[in-house]
Design a protein around this nucleic acid. Sequence first.
DNA 1: CGCTTGGTTGACTACTATCAATTTGCGTGG
DNA 2: CCACGCAAATTGATAGTAGTCAACCAAGCG
Lengths: 237, 237
Amino acid sequence: MAIFNDFLRDRRRDELSSEDLQALEASVHAVQNVPARHSLAISKQPIGVSTYLIEGFICRYMDDREGVRQLVAVHVAGDFVDLHGYPLKRLDHDVATLGPCRIALVRHEAIDQLVRDRPNLTKLLWFSTLLDAAMHREWIFRLGRLDAVARVGHFFCEIEAKLRAVELSDGRQFSCPLTQADIGEACGMTSVHINRMLKELRERGLMHMQRGRVTILDLPALRRLSEFDPSYLFIGE
Amino acid sequence: MAIFNDFLRDRRRDELSSEDLQALEASVHAVQNVPARHSLAISKQPIGVSTYLIEGFICRYMDDREGVRQLVAVHVAGDFVDLHGYPLKRLDHDVATLGPCRIALVRHEAIDQLVRDRPNLTKLLWFSTLLDAAMHREWIFRLGRLDAVARVGHFFCEIEAKLRAVELSDGRQFSCPLTQADIGEACGMTSVHINRMLKELRERGLMHMQRGRVTILDLPALRRLSEFDPSYLFIGE
DNA sequence: CGCTTGGTTGACTACTATCAATTTGCGTGG
DNA sequence: CCACGCAAATTGATAGTAGTCAACCAAGCG
């Protein structure tokens, strides 16, 4: 099947035995395609399935009083998007696709069985939810300590590193269906200001973005500007 | 021993069997007192023990280039502060006490055994690390979408709710050793502006803070102002 | 080829940081 | 008990950054 081909790729994947992996594959109960801008889960509702992202981009977000979104995570291929919903039993945020996606659904009863029978796989599933937590922390840092240019730069450094781990970026180019409004929702800024910061990054020769395609011109400089250190992603360990 | 008396209190604690709890207690290898402003763990270093907070306040934080802190979490009694270090094997942030603390240390080999033998306890330990992730998300929301007054208010709403779950707040008063500089490091603001926002909250009759003691004057109004909804803390479920 | 969505720019406003000076509270030692 | 010293809190003046509002442009689609 190879649905989980990208799961934890470059992150402790070797700790997964082939039996563990097979058991994981066997626990999938459906694979489906979902169009862009489509809601996958609503906050506070009890859930009984978790979503693994095979291909595409998914975001998790919360709305403020006026309905303005704050993204709390952006997921790419290989991410177990809402596995945390398994121990939590309900979500504290909404989930939606950004671009068109291909997803696999896993029922929580199936995970129960994995937890009962496979301590090693369990620990890795746990690990993967904690990777998300580590990214959350980095987002807190980004919002709390970086100025506007660095925030945008940092955001793209993260996306780039995540995509590279699953070979969807070569360190120079990758596709990314986010609009400037989406980026604003991720970075706690208005789309107008995102536009200006992208202009600045372009003029500084660091990166540019057009029609869903991001080009990184100077990754080391971009990372320096953004105080980005990828170690929190646990890639290559 | 009753070290874990406050662990997950009011949060699925009932799902813990007494044998599970005993096994957890038995896994503690030391209990110690730590003074205020004391470092407990350094970012990136491999760790083999996790810290459970019996009493006091602990923070987790990251430094920016200039060494300015950004807090990513504040922990109170009953929190398993860095249990996520067990699956991760190293931390992506520093840990330090805020006030004087009493902590219990648990070796990761001991947790290995729990994971092997006790799927139900494992799931609850996993759950507790995901509570932290849910709080991280709320911090992202706070930093990304709230203005200065609401950020401070939201911060105290969270602390109050967490303390109440372990009966350290009665909904009106609690002690809290954070300085205005600490609060600034949590809310992504300067201590000067924190001072002004506290003044505003005081003048609006919502809350005030002096000498490590917080008084909430109008919790519903404070929560409204701060767009605070405690459901992400999973208290009383 | 007009419509709609997303991107771009300018002018102006509002919020928060910065810098600097005081004040307050409290522990220490005379 | 009081004087000193330090850390934390408070306040004012000013600067800088990001938001708001509004208009316009560009690209993709039916």
